[in-house]
Design a protein around this nucleic acid. Structure first.
Lengths: 329, 329
DNA sequence: TTGTAGGCGTTATCAT
DNA sequence: ATGATAACGCCTACAA
């Protein structure tokens, strides 16, 4: 393995000089810098990130904490987009990434989790799918032992940023579009998981719209479950004009139920997952570009690691209509 | 951060002794071993895997190479299962994992890829979704610079194992079941990607069945594309009795086409992805437990790293019928 | 501007 | 059976 030592010898300089060049330190003459870079090229040197991580405690090792509780593998699409988006940017930024799924840290206390992360020389974390009830993760963020970026949850402190779309506005937008297209008055709103951040935000969006348009809204908790949404629809949809769902999966459950009940009601969802194209009926939904959101999360973590302060980053969303022809390829 | 040094001091022994205990070396008295373990408990010590990786070149860092070319995010389910299965076992085995998606190494030469992996202190690799045309990956395996496990491709050498189901038999089984249930004679077989390992194996299974049952088979390459399968079905299915597909995605494309053509033909798929439950018609398919396969791959890599020799590991498959009621939750 | 040297937390090779 | 001690590859004061 070609190491920094070889580069130093080849360039005729000291190891530390090479290190300085590699890490863009000042106080290196242009000439030496060039000589070192030539040596790097020539020897095809790639810095050993493990050694770097060990040596400098503030190095670029980052962990992805991915929630994976649901058995519904439609969610896989979202997680996968999250992971690829993050890894993509991480590679460009030269950050080392390890991925942790919730089942891997479910049984840990905060202390254990912190120790584990430190034992891995982790400096920054991105958290996906965090709910209000994740005590451990909340404490983790609060300790500020690591730089954190929380995706789709409004947690911000000095070393923690939040990244995501404006859930309230998005829910407002998609519901408004669907309701106006179909001239509805009575709404069945199937909300997400009780105590979820996005659940509450989206509900607020729906309520605001209801007030503005003078709608009557029946709210039921679907827990992001397709089956529950199905059952709720069976029970309440008949004397409603529209079913607004806080997730695509629930929208699919609702739509399938309506088909089985042999009545038509417009349904709209939230997320823009591919599965929406397979239901047979087109639905409005909010397209979140999960990969892009995650890229931004990684970017934000990077600036945090570079000394930036935590803040709230809001990304744009898009209203779309998912149909089979657009999905297939 | 509590280090091995602290443990040593706390237990009143030398650092090297602690290391021996931690790594289950012989030549440590039962008493010292206990004392050390108590200290570990007391201090909540977690070994720093980064330092370990740096120190011992044969350490437990492992890379997952995941193919991600297809835009079809139904594949996400498979990749996700692969990743979770592998990570799950890796955590139990105390192996450090980094995940690489194909877009991250697509533009690298073998040498670059090897250097990169070495710079990460990687000792073992699991490769998912490898095709015959992946020159770089083939060379990578051939160099034997790393211990490798290839999932669903028959590559074996001294330091390379292959893990997967028996594709030939599985294709034979599922096609046979479907054909006998419906008493068919004329088969439209939509194969996978030209030059794919599994494609060829599955085709062989189909051909063997055709010979045994005296079937006529029209073979077309669907490239694992839902759209292509759809078009092929439109064109050829009319005067066939059954459509056998080498993947679920293609089976879905075929089935949707048949529905649009308003004719009925039995269709069978291959993989057992959740999406199969959303098509409206039940289909036979081969259920591969991707997470389990991947767990086994990690297990195999572990034994390889421990000095085992490469071999072929064949895992069981299962015939299932996917319907919506079973999928939803 | 450049080089020297100590340290990051482990592992592994020797003595003892 | 146990303990010094030298790597591993890199970073970073500090010295020159």
């Amino acid at each position: 393995m070609v190491s920094i030592k070889d580069v130093a010898r080849c360039a005729g300089v000291a190891i530390s000089t090479v290190s300085k060049v590699l890490n863009d330190y000042p106080n290196v003459s242009e000439e030496t810098r060039e000589r070192v870079n030539r040596a790097v090229e020539e020897l095809n040197f790639v810095p050993n990130s493990v050694a770097a991580a060990l040596s400098s405690k503030q190095a670029g090792r980052v962990a992805l904490l991915v929630d994976i509780n649901s058995k519904t593998s439609a969610i896989d699409e979202i997680n996968m987009q999250h992971i690829t988006g993050a890894l993509n940017r991480a590679m460009e930024l030269n950050l080392d990434v390890i991925t942790l799924f919730s089942f891997m840290y479910r049984n840990m206390t905060v202390e254990e989790l912190i120790r584990y992360l430190k034992s891995q020389s982790i400096a920054g974390i991105i958290i996906y799918g965090m709910s209000k009830e994740d005590k451990v993760l909340h404490k983790l963020v609060e300790t500020q032992e690591f730089k954190c970026v929380v995706v789709n949850a409004p947690l911000v402190n000095k070393s923690t940023s939040s990244v995501g779309i404006d859930d309230r506005k998005a829910q407002y937008d998609v519901a408004r579009k669907t309701i106006e297209e179909n001239n509805c008055k009575r709404v069945l709103y199937i909300a997400g998981k009780r105590n979820g951040y996005v659940t509450d935000e989206r509900l607020l969006g729906m309520e605001q719209l209801a007030k503005e348009l003078g709608l009557t809204v029946l709210v039921r908790n679907g827990e992001f479950s397709e089956l529950l949404a199905r059952n709720i629809t069976m029970k309440y949809a008949k004397n409603k004009d529209v079913v607004v769902c806080a997730s695509d999966l629930m929208a699919i459950g609702a739509m399938k139920a309506l088909i089985d009940m042999d009545i038509f009601r417009p349904v709209c969802g939230f997320d823009g997952i591919v599965l929406m194209g397979y239901v047979g009926k087109q639905m409005n939904t909010v397209r979140q570009n999960f990969a892009e959101v995650s890229r931004n999360a990684m970017e934000e973590l990077h600036t945090l690691l570079a000394g930036g302060e935590g803040r709230k980053v809001v990304l744009p969303h898009q209203l779309v209509r998912m149909k089979y022809e657009d999905i297939i390829c």
